[in-house]
Nucleic acid binder design. Structure first.
Lengths: 282, 282
DNA sequence: ATAAACTATGAAATTTTATTTCACTATAGT
DNA sequence: ACTATAGTGAAATAAAATTTCATAGTTTAT
């Protein structure tokens, strides 16, 4: 089965009135969509252009253009359906599991293009570029990404933190100012600690960049800049595995973009540290 | 072969100067086209927006929009080709960098199949399944993977550690026994701390599973079980980024395999913890 | 050699399409 | 009954695609 259409079908009941009309029309005429405009589609589905755009966001795709593109691609494939997640039902052999998890991780990374908005990403890079201090915060499955960000941006010379301890971290927030950035990482966008921390930081004037699922969660709504990860199949066995890959890829992209923009200035220090690492290795 | 690209290739010599530039750019970067605008493409190809539109007509496609759509569909069908990593050379825009890093990460994961040996992987799963305690150790770029492993296997009820502090960690090694496992993570396989630790652990009777590049490094030679990551392009800008993805994917696969083998027994406790997490979220 | 005719090109204008904002409505919670 | 909130489409705005047009460079005819 087809993942975008399947996703629409599954979530049909969670959608609002106008969005449901959209969903039904799309499910009935998937092949027509890629050649339609928002106006066409809104007329056919009996809604408005704004609802078309909102519908795309609701099913986890950042824009109507991307929606059309992805749908076209999927319909083109039509057969290649390895997207079947109940592989863990039966007793699989370890090596099968390895191959499946590779596939899932790969697909998750592929899907980021559908959820990450270009403009938001550019805003994030720009903000970080001019930031004084960075705070990375994520708990549970998102702690890995926070640590990774902390590690990478420290290498670029940013005073950064990524403490796990919420109360410890809280005490550092009042020292943040307008040029400081909190990177709040939470798959669900509902994690209480992450939310509290980002609210507090905003109150103190810092900017909050959220790395979170494209979904109308509190964190999504409240963040200043949103870097969205795709909503992937939620199977409890896989848990946060593919999400963590997408979070990390976004961190990677931020890091490389900032490194690229900083240019030669930072590179010489970077190399200096690197050479020391190699020297100390022996 | 691919009909649109083939058509461009065949007719390249019949095209005018500006159109030829277009054709060459499209042939070199077909995957990027569907997400580009006329402006993007005209800049990259060194022509004007009008030439982009004219180019589409010249190769027999009525509009740029249709061109993008058709190209996307075709590429979706036969997705398997290029594996070239040297695109981070020039000054790129943030969003380009994002796309490139996604691609690199994806490719790296794909490549694990070529480096990870099935038998070694099965041995590793089996060993961990019967282990009493686990120690994850990795420094620098590999610290993320160590932390992630620590986090995951703790969820499965294993007494695990993943400390950063070498000397602190050393003091716990003499308490390891035959059933304990050290997962030593190092890209190069030459990192001094990781090597020392794994030698010490082996002397005390523990088993060392190495997650390291497929290469005749000291760690590769000395480990009891080798889970090899593919050797990917070593560009200092990308650094350890793709390697870290492969390390994490291996950890994921180990985790899921162990979870799967443990079966129902562990699942009930797992769910218990999970429900608490969800409850505490609100 | 020179003018006329033609061609290719990019800048700018126009049209179309997508996205955002905003005011209004319905509905739920107090 | 009164807020607060979510959902909606009309209208405004932004972005993207397409067309027009002036110009520069070629070719052709005389």
């Amino acid at each position: 089965m087809n993942s975008i259409l399947a996703r629409i079908n599954e979530n049909l009941h969670t959608l609002s009135e106008a969005e449901k009309k959209m969903g039904i029309y799309v499910l009935e005429n998937p092949k027509l969509i890629p050649n339609m405009t928002t106006k066409d589609l809104s007329r056919k589905a009996g809604t408005s252009e704004s609802s078309v755009v909102r519908f795309c966001k609701s099913i986890g795709i950042e824009s109507f253009k991307t929606f059309k593109l992805e749908l076209a691609k999927e319909l083109a494939k039509e057969d290649f359906n390895l997207t079947d997640f109940n592989f863990l039902q039966k007793k699989s052999e370890p090596y099968d599991i390895f191959q499946q998890v590779s596939f899932v991780n790969k697909s998750a990374i592929e899907a980021i293009t559908t959820s990450l908005e270009r403009k938001e990403f550019e805003k994030a890079v720009d903000k970080i570029l001019h930031a004084d201090k960075l705070v990375f915060y994520g708990v549970g499955g998102s702690a890995t990404a926070a640590l990774d960000g902390f590690y990478k941006f420290t290498k670029l010379g940013y005073p950064s933190t990524a403490h796990q301890d919420f109360h410890f971290l809280l005490s550092s927030i009042p020292y943040l100012n307008k040029n400081d950035v909190v990177i709040a990482i939470s798959m669900s966008g509902k994690t209480k600690d992450v939310l509290e921390l980002s609210r507090f930081a905003q109150k103190e004037g810092a900017t909050v960049i959220a790395i979170t699922n494209l979904d109308k969660s509190p964190l999504y709504k409240e963040a200043d800049i949103r870097l969205c990860t795709p909503v992937v199949e939620q199977d409890y066995r896989i848990g946060s595995i593919p999400s963590r890959m997408t979070q990390l890829t976004i961190i990677d992209a931020l890091y490389l973009s900032v490194l690229n923009k900083k240019g030669e200035n930072v590179l010489s220090r970077y190399h200096e540290a690197r050479n020391e690492v190699i020297r100390l290795r022996r």
